[in-house]
């Protein structure tokens, strides 16, 4: 569903070249839940922006469902880290979710039905009439997720979506993303710097090195599909896997120092 081949991205400016991504190759099968982790500053966001068609790569290729990405591709939605700035403050919650549907040309009744369904899926059916700034951070990020779901994408990219919410809200949102993934059967790529989060959420974890970035390891997470904040995190296999990812990230950091 998502193919990344020899992706390289160099930022140029002020006579200086910064190679954010050196050579990234991996793929994500349809319906898979993949997390990308790496040390901070390793170009995770750059990678995601290249996948989302928001940033042209220097070389290499990205395809979504077989089609090369040259701009924001069909059937792909992004949930940004800055929830407070990705929702339109002048639109109410339901209008925020409906806007991309309006642009798609869907009729009013159809829009209302999808919006209602998506808001219900994230547990915010009651907040349809509120403005985003009347909601807590966690609720705002739920709205952003509902908007992405309403768009009915085949691929959903999330860029450190829970980096700015408190720990308890974060646990709730992690479970929400898992349940939404299972329910909607969407292909999901989740970028995070949090190792525990990546192991808890994903079926596969892609570990990146620090800049200039390459893929260090592509690790299958063989935990049961039904996950629970208490039992999964206490599972010896979970602890083993997170220890392994932790060691890899540490090694990746050191190798460039």
């Amino acid at each position: 569903m998502l193919e990344i081949r020899a992706l390289r991205k160099v930022y140029e400016g002020h006579g200086r070249q910064v190679e954010a991504l050196h050579n990234i190759t991996f793929s994500v099968r349809a319906g898979e839940f993949v997390c990308v982790v790496g040390p901070s500053g390793c170009g995770k966001t750059t990678l995601l922006r290249c996948l989302g068609g928001l940033l042209p790569p220097t070389s290499g290729e990205v395809t979504v469902a077989g089609a090369p990405v040259a701009g924001p591709p069909d059937g792909l939605a992004i949930v940004f880290q800055e929830y407070g700035r990705s929702l339109f403050p002048w639109l109410r919650v339901a209008e925020n979710v409906a806007l991309p549907l309006k642009s798609k040309g869907l009729g009013k009744a159809q829009r209302a039905a999808i919006v209602g369904e998506s808001l219900a899926a994230v547990g915010l059916a009651d907040a349809a009439g509120a403005y985003p700034w009347q909601l807590s951070g966690g609720m705002q990020q739920r709205v952003a997720i509902a908007r992405a779901l309403a768009f009915q994408p085949r691929v959903l990219l999330l860029d450190e979506p829970f980096a700015a919410v408190d720990a308890q809200t974060r646990a709730d949102l992690e479970d929400l993303v898992r349940s939404v993934w299972q329910r909607f059967g969407v292909t999901l790529l989740f970028v995070t710097h949090d190792i525990d989060e990546s192991v808890y959420l994903a079926e596969r974890v892609i570990i990146l090195s620090s800049s200039p970035t390459v893929v260090v390891e592509d690790l299958a997470i063989d935990l049961p599909a039904a996950r629970d904040q208490l039992t999964t995190r206490a599972d010896p296999r979970f602890i083993e896997l997170r220890g392994h990812v932790y060691a890899q990230v540490q090694k990746a950091k050191r190798s460039h120092e």
Partner: peptide, 20 residues
């Protein structure tokens, strides 16, 4: 960030002008 949101959801020109 809002501008990128419009781009990534491919909000049409007129709607973008009016709503963003």
């Amino acid at each position: 960030v809002l501008a990128e949101t419009c781009r990534s959801y491919r909000i049409g020109e007129m709607l973008r002008l009016r709503m963003f």
